[in-house]
Design a protein around this nucleic acid. Structure first.
Lengths: 271, 271
DNA sequence: GGAATAGTGTCTTTTAGACATTATGTA
DNA sequence: TACATAATGTCTAAAAGACACTATTCC
């Protein structure tokens, strides 16, 4: 970090209090980290990349990286995702989660992380790691064990690509991921974002499975159908059908509504 | 910003992609800005400070300032509030809102702002500006006009302390404030935070007035009472009463419940 | 008594939960 | 036909909205 006192003072001092001291206002590095969530094989999953270099070499982490000097935060998040995993967010829903800034969260230096959540459709998409990283999806269930144990007490450098072991995540990414999952669970209640986990067109059963997977519960088919179809603009009928093992199901696309009012309440959600 | 390539590379490079270039990862200054909201004279109000120095000298702004090198973000937010206005957040509810990072949001240099929302009880509290700043509450209604007009097209350096004119806010603080107000409106629906705008003990009428003020609507007294009293842990009866112009009202304190499920839905909230 | 505010009761409408039942395809 | 899944119908219980009404204070 620069200690060029006069220069920093000229640019920063105007907003500083009377007891201004340049050494107290050292800038920080900024990263974006991104929890890309989707439904894979009937389970809620997140995309992780394996770190090649220290710190946390060999650990799995949320994709992300440093924000460039003249780059918007949202732009940085999607750019880093594309660079590390080859994934383009297209028109998917991307929203800021929150910012993590504990002074010791990165052992190298002070690093702030602006975290994002992405709702990716369930379509099986190839994931290409870059030269430096491998990338794969992990079921949330297979990671939550390590959340409660903390992120620093397990060396996982021998993990194979298909290992069943639950890896510890780099940095505070287990906390970020837990917050992201809770955000998604809450958002399904009062928004129509569940549909953004599906490729179009989709059936009402598929939409119900999204809720059942994310909330880890069972929903009554009739009541769910009544609720979704009575919510104006949640889904739009295409008129066509899809053939399955049983009776063909009607196909729908996403409607224009974003909010869901009154909400679809998650069972067992007592105050 | 330092251009000491080797040193920066050694500390930052481990997380960077293969095409790493130190000049692309320049650090940024970090501020916290804080929207302290309360009910003043029956209106939703926010605490602003008048800027003494450039940029935006004479403009009103959210209290806030630079985060210190080894300081937690939450700590920085409450420290800056105390320094600029003499207000201690005590046990009030403080929550992170979101982070604002548009590259040109500060004309001096790249500055990220991590914004917070505070729910302050309505108690008339003295607000002391520091040596560099004046501080006062503004009704949200008196500021929203300037939100839609943008924050840069009005010089307000002549504004007196009791001016009725609607000032333009410094930086992108009008956007931050708009997001904060919307956050509060939403939170009253599915949390018990409305009670944190009141001093204890309070009456159910006072609690209803909080909702009516924040949502700008009228609520039926009987239905509101039924809803609040049936929500377990929202309020706790003290057994005592308070005398007003009419029949004495029963007094309550805040209960232990944080979530409100099912929610108290805001009228005219159609999807 | 009258004004003002607090608190209760009740009727109706809406919505949600818990099913039973019918429909329509494939093996 | 058996089976699997989609779609509909119905009964009940709970909650919300719209009131009318009663209660208790101060003047």
């Amino acid at each position: 970090m620069s200690r060029d006192g006069t220069k920093v003072d000229a640019r920063v001092g105007a907003n500083a209090p009377a007891d201004y001291d340049p050494s107290k206002y050292a800038p920080s590095a900024i990263t974006t980290d991104l929890a890309l969530l989707t439904i894979r094989n009937g389970r809620l999953a997140v995309l992780l990349v394996e770190r090649a270099a220290a710190p946390f070499a060999g650990y799995w982490a949320l994709p992300g990286g440093f924000v460039r000097p003249d780059e918007d935060l949202d732009t940085a998040a999607t750019r880093e995702l594309a660079e590390e995993t080859g994934i383009d967010v297209h028109d998917w829903h991307v929203e800021q989660l929150r910012t993590y800034g504990a002074p010791e969260r990165d052992p190298r230096m002070r690093v702030l992380s602006v975290a994002y959540v992405v709702f990716m459709p369930t379509d099986a998409r190839p994931v290409a790691g870059s030269a430096a990283t491998r990338a794969r999806f992990w079921a949330i269930d297979d990671l939550t064990a390590s959340v409660s144990e903390g992120a620093l007490d397990d060396a996982v450098s021998e993990l194979s690509d298909h290992a069943k072991a639950t890896p510890s995540l780099a940095f505070d990414h287990a906390c970020i991921l837990a917050d992201a999952v809770e955000r998604v669970r809450a958002k399904l209640e009062y928004t129509t974002l569940a549909a953004s986990f599906l490729d179009e067109p989709f059936t009402l059963s598929e939409l119900r499975h999204v809720y059942e997977t994310v909330w880890d519960c069972r929903l009554d088919t009739g009541n769910f159908r009544r609720k979704v179809l009575s919510a104006d603009g949640f889904v739009v009928s295409t008129g066509s059908q899809c053939s399955t093992a049983g009776r063909p199901a009607a196909l729908y696309t996403r409607g224009a509504a974003r909010a869901l009012s009154p909400p679809l309440v998650r069972p067992g959600n007592e105050s």
